[in-house]
């Protein structure tokens, strides 16, 4: 059954009529064309579909779009400030934090939310937080390096 919902995605308001069973990841990708968010495992484990809902990371592949009615959502497309990449995005490029790139939007959204909740994390806290984001290419060292440096950069530019 269809339901009309309101979402604010990356600062833009949208009124959408979607079937009740529409998953948030499909709503973002197919209804709004925001294909930066990826779907991989489809069971809330791998982290590829991670987006921020009201400032908190969630697995959009097991979230119903209708349950997000009224929410503010940030996807990877919403991180850059005008044409300037977020320090975490730039750091993933500078430090080679990806190969195939499928997990990267989720990795960056998860690390962005860590930065929001804990602006000065230790390496162990980063590993603990990022445990729900899998990568099958890099072996994680480059990802950790990207996050450590991206967070340092974000702190520097905030001061």
């Amino acid at each position: 059954m269809d339901k009309t919902i309101h979402l604010k995605v990356n600062g833009q308001d949208h009124d959408l009529t979607v079937p009740a069973q529409r998953l948030l990841v499909d709503c973002l990708r197919y209804d709004l064309g925001l294909t930066g968010t990826k779907e991989s495992c489809s069971v809330g484990v791998c982290g590829a579909c991670t987006v921020l809902v009201n400032g908190k990371i969630v697995a959009s592949c097991i979230s119903l779009a209708v349950a997000a009615d009224g929410a503010e959502i940030t996807t990877i497309e919403g991180l850059a400030d005008d044409r300037r990449l977020h320090p975490l995005q730039q750091s993933f490029i500078d430090h080679g934090g990806f190969q195939c790139g499928i997990c990267t939007p989720g990795q960056i959204m998860a690390s962005k939310s860590l930065l929001d909740e804990n602006p000065d994390p230790t390496e162990d806290e980063i590993k603990d937080w990022m445990m729900g984001n899998l990568c099958r290419c890099t072996g994680y060292y480059k990802i950790l390096e990207s996050i450590v440096n991206g967070i340092a950069e974000a702190k520097g530019s905030a001061q």
């Binding site: 809330g44 484990v45 982290g47 991670t50 908190k56 990371i57 969630v58 697995a59 097991i62 979230s63 998860a110 939310s113 937080w129 445990m131 729900g132 984001n133």
Partner: peptide
């Protein structure tokens, strides 16, 4: 429990 994104939901 699971990971942060699951514990947020």
């Amino acid at each position: 429990v699971a990971s942060v994104k699951i514990r947020n939901m």
